[in-house]
């Protein structure tokens, strides 16, 4: 028996919008720790890891570890039927081949339930060890989204370079080149407007902008984004989900021919 009641149902709606274009089908894993997911895109270039900790739910009952295979496009269709202020409860019985999403309006005058078919997904689970990164950049998530969108109108790849001068995003394409440099800036009114650069040593890596732009669909989940870079590892683009956990995107770099 599984029953997870999330008062801020809009979080789940935003999570689905953030990942449904990157991943088609995925197993949601439910354990005492929380509601989580790890999935790769179809070309195995990017990976998304989601964690919504059990403490973040108003009610969290998970009698035994359960993995539920869902088509994310179908799940998104169902969650779009929930209002932004609705409380969402996810329910499943042991051994059932369906999951139920229950939506309650804030004043309890409307209750809807949507039952979705589960699917068997033979997905590969990757171990992601803790790593020391050469550079970690925290910046406003809207700024990062703007840069990725702007650069993708010029080129297909972005070179992200961190030096003591700041973080530089560069691209080149048929019509020309573009460089955006963000310097550390902590003299801002609100902490989420700051750009903070922690650099152990300079690093420069190249990534496909198509994936970066896909990751920025998580922007509504968090005011800030944290980008971790090391020359021999995939980039990690992390959006913290307030009080609950995170959504992390990992992207393998491109290397010279």
């Amino acid at each position: 028996m599984l029953e997870l009641r999330l008062v801020q149902g809009s979080l789940l709606k935003k999570v689905l919008e953030a990942i449904k274009d990157l991943v088609n089908d995925a197993n949601f894993d439910c354990s005492a720790t929380g509601f989580s997911l790890q999935a790769m895109d179809s070309s195995h270039v990017a990976l998304v890891a989601l964690l919504l900790r059990s403490e973040g739910f108003e009610h969290y009952r998970c009698d035994r570890n359960l993995s539920m295979g869902m088509n994310l496009n179908n799940m998104s269709k169902m969650l779009k039927c929930a209002g932004n202020d609705d409380i969402i409860t996810i329910k499943a019985d042991d051994g059932s081949d369906t999951v139920t999403f229950m939506f309650e309006s804030p004043n309890q005058d409307k209750i809807a339930d949507f039952e979705m078919k589960l699917m068997d997904i033979d997905s590969e689970h990757l171990g992601i060890p803790e790593a020391e990164y050469q550079a970690i950049v925290r910046m406003p998530s809207s700024e990062f989204a703007r840069i990725c969108k702007d650069l993708s109108s010029i080129g297909d790849t972005v070179v992200i370079s961190v030096t003591k001068e700041g973080v530089k995003f560069s691209t080149r394409g048929d019509i020309g080149t573009a460089n955006v440099v963000c310097r550390q800036n902590t003299t801002v009114d609100k902490p989420e407007e700051a750009t903070v650069i922690e650099m152990q040593e300079p690093v420069s890596l190249t990534f496909a902008l198509r994936y970066m732009n896909s990751f920025t669909k998580a922007t509504p989940l968090s005011g800030t984004v944290t980008i971790s870079l090391s020359s021999d590892l995939p980039i990690v683009v992390e959006y913290k989900i307030a009080e609950m956990g995170y959504i992390r995107f990992y992207l393998a770099p491109k290397i010279e021919d």
């Binding site: 790769m40 070309s43 195995h44 270039v45 990017a46 990976l47 590969e124 689970h125 990757l126 171990g127 992601i128 297909d156 790849t157 190249t206 496909a208 590892l233 995939p234 990992y250 992207l251 393998a252 770099p253 491109k254 290397i255 010279e256 021919d257």
Partner: peptide
């Protein structure tokens, strides 16, 4: 431009 590496080249199946 460039060769796209795969995520599975960095992280192994568990």
């Amino acid at each position: 431009s460039g060769i796209q590496l795969s995520i599975t080249e960095f992280y192994r199946s568990t």
